[in-house]
């Protein structure tokens, strides 16, 4: 079991309020991702759950039990750090077995568990190596192995993939997701990368300046962003926003439309513009169009098309997919 409940948690560092007031309910077995720009408080929130920082106010409960005043060693959680934080003087075997040793587990049973974890993570051949002799991906897996051996109530991941190169990142993303499907243990995962959030999460918490902007499934966030911040943060390329007259037409302070919800034509449409840069990804092409009175807008088109930089084009948004926001940025 591993449900995590935050009740009015807040955190102040030396007079500076990092987390004003957060309440969350993470269900047992759920994969929840905290996402937001750097400095939004997502890592702090994770460290509060871990017990590596303490709350200034509010309560944290694990399975309904208040653990606010318990130290990290007594919460029964496991954490994977951005730097992996492997013990450099221990072999892979000792690294993975360390939590079991700390729990005074019987040696034979611990050995068995370490071997099992190593097999799952393809580390069997490396058990007697020191961390410095491993590649980045292998180190990452050792860190995960260390987390899974003692069957924690929940896993906490603090930007675990940001030190890996792009190709490896995609692989590890899939491995962690599969691991979650096997273990069905609660996972809380912090990232600044909305693609990781969208692809891995059951539910996403979007954080901004220590506030929860929205908490929902990836598709809820995509389809019905609660406000302009979430709308802009979730989705790639970013949503286009229009203000002023273009927005007034829809009775809103501003309107947003995603690049994939704009039709482009040479002849006619709602907005006229000129193609600036075309980014060819093969499967898709992103056209950056200079629209008069609305600045640079992004349009997603099929991979092979005939638009070239400098072309005069017309853009037409899908009327069913226009997001309207009021003056405070809230969705209408």
């Amino acid at each position: 079991m591993g449900s995590i409940t935050l009740e009015h948690v807040n955190k102040t560092f030396g007079g500076h309020q990092v987390i004003p007031d957060v309440s969350l309910e993470i269900k047992d077995g759920e994969f929840v991702v905290f996402v937001g720009p750097s400095g939004c408080g997502k890592s702090t929130l994770l460290r509060l759950i871990a017990g590596l920082e303490d709350t200034t106010g509010g309560h944290i409960k694990l399975d309904g039990v208040d653990v606010t005043d318990k130290g990290p060693a007594h919460r029964g959680l496991a954490m994977v750090f951005q730097s992996y934080a492997l013990y450099p003087h221990m072999t892979v075997r000792q690294n993975i077995g360390f939590p079991l040793k700390m729990a005074n587990m019987d040696k034979a049973a611990a050995e068995q568990k370490v071997n099992d974890a190593a097999r799952v993570l393809n580390l069997t051949d490396y058990l007697d190596r020191k961390p410095r002799m491993l590649s980045g991906g292998q180190r990452q897996r050792v860190a995960i192995g260390r987390a899974i051996v003692r069957q924690p109530k929940a896993f906490l991941f603090d930007e675990p993939l940001s030190n890996l190169d792009a190709a490896l990142r995609v692989n590890m993303r899939i491995e962690i997701t599969e691991l979650h499907q096997q273990l069905k243990t609660t996972m809380v995962y912090v990232t600044h990368d909305q693609v990781e959030a969208m692809t891995m999460a059951d539910r996403i918490v979007v954080l901004n300046a220590g506030r929860v902007e929205q908490f929902g499934t990836p598709l809820e966030l995509y389809k019905a962003p609660a406000n302009k911040f979430v709308a802009g943060f979730i989705g790639s390329p970013k949503m286009n926003f229009f203000e002023g007259a273009a927005a007034g037409k829809y009775q809103a302070a501003s309107v947003g439309v995603r690049p994939e919800h704009i039709r482009i034509s040479r002849d006619a449409g709602d907005w006229q513009g000129r193609v600036g840069v075309a980014e060819h990804l093969g499967s898709d092409t992103f056209l950056h169009v200079h629209v008069e009175g609305a600045g640079l807008q992004t349009v997603r088109t099929e991979g092979e098309n005939s638009f070239n930089p400098g072309d005069e084009v017309w853009l037409t948004p899908d009327p069913a997919r226009i997001y309207r926001f009021d003056g405070a940025g809230l969705a209408l």
Partner: peptide, 8 residues
């Protein structure tokens, strides 16, 4: 950055 307990 650490907990009050650690500081104690």
């Amino acid at each position: 950055m650490a907990t009050r307990q650690t500081h104690r």
